[in-house]
Write a protein that binds this DNA or RNA. Structure first.
Length: 763
DNA sequence: TGTACTTAAGTTTTT
DNA sequence: CTTAAGTACA
């Protein structure tokens, strides 16, 4: 017992050992939030306050849920299986699988990810002859999701104008179509569960009695519906332990309501909010900067981070004449820090929007600095994987029209848009799903025959799904669908084939976990009375898994590499050294945010998150000009840089030296709320020129010294390629973007590689 | 029906 | 600049 409470500070201890009462823990960045959450669970179980089965812990990401489970099993020698720890969506999926009848869902309902949802919206909008100019599919999709996340069905949405009324109608038709197909989107998982519990008192009471303790992570990110969901499950006797930080609320654009924190305090009569303000991550100056910036926001719950550590280094601020120079500066600093012994993987290069990574990547590449970009395509989102999954989905549920349209003519089998339209028309007239139409031979001629073949393939797969193990079934899918043949024949299909093989492995691994009850759905299985064949159960669980957990981001080679990511994806992480780039008005804070009410405050919280990622070193940089959409844009320093107290900063180049004629160029600074004037002057505007004298020539000299780095590979050099492995450069031609190198690989033979595309690193 | 060209548009993201 | 989506043509 003593063990788990050791080394907690007084506030952490208070939070962990609270008596049975609802609580809001205001946990600042780096204050040991996850530790408090997991220790609280361990404490409750160890003191016998509750059995593991009485715990419900909700997170936003699978990663956070896994982290919690890992730490928990390190703390307690218990079986974590009975515990409900997971994401909102994962837990809802679990509930709906158990109570599919009461939720009015087919047993093997499928989950649409955002991409699937968008194709469904597009298909439906087209079928209804909706003007895509007036109602862009993206907007329709957003409208539906916003409604659902507010807990509103179409019949509950108030529409005052014609435009909204049309969208509401569409929403109703969309839902009807989902029901026909037996599919649910992400927001539907939550709304459907909420309705299930609202309408079935016995089920609600069962779970209210079971989950005596409900814990919520990142509470500031909950949306309206999620909060209602928590409230419903907690009931009058529940005990909610919410951990959050209003200063780190950066997801308002996807429906997060910081106001839920105040609601919670009111609804659950919380009398004292526990504040965790001691920061164990950043040194003093960094923390002071964060506090100073966030102090500009109004309507905060109020919290000030402090540290027992010293002040540490000052913040480094660099004003670059342009984006390329900014990148060059960062790369030099990264190398210098690396020489001082900081691992590349312990440094992060942050930016506001993904588009900014290109210049940075280019410069890093030329300088042979290994890096890893977060935010790429994930495994289950890859085209070839989604195709294979669509066949699996049809095997599980032939009425899944989204899956049907995706693969009915992929690989190409002579079924064109015309034929699919015929099926669609028939379906619109109430003649059933697309698959049903294909089966009944609505389409004649060659296409009709091809369709018949397709139906037979799916039927065969469906039969196989009843008996084959999951990995066997996946293999069968790859063969029968001819996906393997198709990608095998494609000249650049090797990577895709590898991913398809990887899917078999993923299926095997999943089946294994499922059998051992490691997958939560494995337990849910016990609760289901009438379950179909076990093989079909596993298939449904696997498909849900593929939608809910898109898989780890593309794993780079395990080497030490600089971490590149948006500020959003940096949330929750920490690094010894952090570079925040592109600190210009219009970029960060983003220009679009200035039009929204409270938009700049959200951007400021984003800046706060960025700063508090750093342990020891923090760099802020901005560029006088930046290439955007192929044209130069001229910007001025972000207000966020100016909000940092001057005494915390060390300017590496004095700003006035770079922008000599700044006073002559007219720049606008948007207001916090109105922001009517653009903060970027367009391409034709006058640039803040660098001082043609001293500064420029000094920079030129630096560029000259950098020259050799432009051609990082010389003959005889050892290099590494992400796919082909290690090799040696044996020839070279071209310059700049056209440059190609010939590399002899240890295992893959000799290849010519375009430097522009191939990710080669020096070894 | 599939390929090649043109054109438009371009925050942040998890489930 | 890049990418995606849509249109014209073989």
């Amino acid at each position: 017992m003593q063990g788990i409470l050791d080394n907690l500070n007084p506030e952490q201890l208070k939070a962990v050992t609270l008596a049975r009462q609802c609580a809001l823990i205001l946990a600042g960045a780096g204050s040991g939030k996850t530790r408090v959450l997991t220790t609280r669970i361990a404490y409750l179980i160890q003191t016998g306050a509750v059995s593991p089965a009485g715990i419900l812990a909700v997170t936003f990401t699978n990663k956070a849920a896994r982290e919690m489970l890992t730490r928990l099993s390190a703390m307690l020698p218990i079986n974590t299986r009975g515990m409900w720890i997971g994401t909102f969506h994962g837990l809802c999926n679990r509930l709906l699988r158990i109570h599919f009848r009461d939720a009015d869902l087919p047993q093997l309902f499928q989950i649409l990810d955002s991409g699937d949802q968008q194709s469904l919206v597009k298909r439906l909008a087209k079928a209804q002859g909706i003007d895509e100019e007036k109602f862009p599919p993206r907007q329709l999709q957003a409208f539906i999701n916003n409604c659902k996340e507010a807990g509103l069905r179409a019949n509950a949405v108030e529409a005052s104008d014609e435009f909204t009324r049309r969208m509401v109608t569409f929403y109703a038709e969309y839902d009807a179509q989902c029901n026909r197909e037996g599919v649910v989107d992400f927001a539907e998982l939550l709304l459907r569960t909420f309705e299930l519990l609202s309408k079935n008192l016995d089920i609600l009471q069962h779970y209210q009695a079971r989950f005596r303790y409900i814990l919520v992570d990142e509470f500031q990110d909950t949306n309206k519906l999620q909060y209602k969901w928590i409230k419903l499950l907690a009931g009058t006797n529940g005990c909610v332990f919410a951990v959050g930080d209003d200063d780190q609320s950066i997801y308002r654009f996807r429906g997060a309501e910081v106001g839920n924190m105040n609601e919670l305090v009111r609804d659950f009569a919380i009398t004292d909010v526990v504040k965790l303000e001691q920061n164990y991550r950043s040194q003093g100056n960094i923390l002071d900067a964060a506090n100073a910036i966030i102090a500009h926001n109004k309507a905060r719950l109020g919290k000030n981070l402090w540290t027992a550590e010293g002040k540490g280094e000052p913040l480094r601020v660099y004003a670059a004449p342009n984006d390329e120079d900014e990148a060059r500066f960062i790369v030099e600093e990264v190398r210098s820090l690396n020489r001082e012994g900081i691992a590349l993987s312990d440094m992060a290069l942050l930016y506001r929007s993904n588009a900014q990574s290109r210049v940075l990547e280019h410069t890093l590449f030329r300088a042979s600095v290994p890096y890893r970009v977060y935010g790429g395509l994930r495994f289950f989102e890859r085209q070839e994987v989604k195709h294979a999954l669509a066949y699996l989905r049809l095997a599980a549920n032939p009425d899944d029209d989204t899956a049907f349209t995706r693969v009915v003519n992929f690989p190409p089998r002579g079924i064109g848009t015309r034929s699919v339209e015929q099926l669609q028309d028939a379906s619109d007239q109430g003649l059933g799903s697309l698959m049903h139409g294909a089966r009944t031979g609505i389409v004649g001629g060659r296409s009709g025959a091809a369709l018949k073949q397709f139906v037979e393939t799916i039927d065969a797969l469906r039969k196989s799904s009843e008996t084959l193990t999951l990995p066997e079934l996946v293999e069968e899918v790859l063969e029968r669908s001819r996906l393997k043949d198709h990608y095998g024949a494609e000249k650049d299909g090797q990577d895709r084939l590898e991913n398809l093989n990887e899917l078999i492995n993923a299926a095997a691994a999943f089946a294994e976990d499922f059998e051992h009850g490691l997958e939560p759905a494995g337990e849910a299985q016990e609760d289901v009375a009438n379950a179909g064949t076990p093989e079909q159960q596993i298939l449904a669980a696997f498909l849900a898994h593929a939608s809910l957990e898109a898989g780890e981001r593309e794993a780079a080679a395990g080497q030490d590499a600089l971490q590149l990511m948006t500020v959003h994806s940096a949330k929750g992480l920490e690094f010894s050294a952090v570079f925040i780039s592109g600190l210009e008005e219009g970029l960060f804070p983003h220009e679009n945010s200035m039009l929204e009410d409270g938009g700049v405050e959200e951007e400021r919280r984003l800046m706060y998150v960025a700063i508090t990622r750093a342990r020891k070193r923090l760099y802020l940089s901005y560029a006088g000009s930046r290439m955007l959409h192929g044209q130069p844009r001229y910007g001025i320093v972000s207000r966020f840089v100016e909000e940092v107290p001057a005494q915390l900063c060390k300017w590496l180049v004095l700003p006035e030296k770079q922008f000599e004629n700044r006073g002559q160029t007219t720049f606008f600074r948007g207001g916090e709320k109105r922001g009517l004037s653009p903060n970027w002057s367009a391409g034709g505007g006058r640039a803040p020129q660098a001082d043609p004298g001293r500064y420029r020539s000094a920079e030129r000299a630096t560029f000259e010294r950098q020259r050799p780095d432009e051609q990082p590979f010389s003959i005889g050099q050892n290099v590494r390629h992400a796919k082909f492995g290690d090799g040696v450069v044996i020839d070279f031609e071209g310059r700049g973007l056209d440059a190609r190198v010939q590399v002899r690989f240890a295992s893959e033979g000799t290849k010519w590689l375009a430097l522009q595309f191939a990710k080669l690193t020096a070894v």
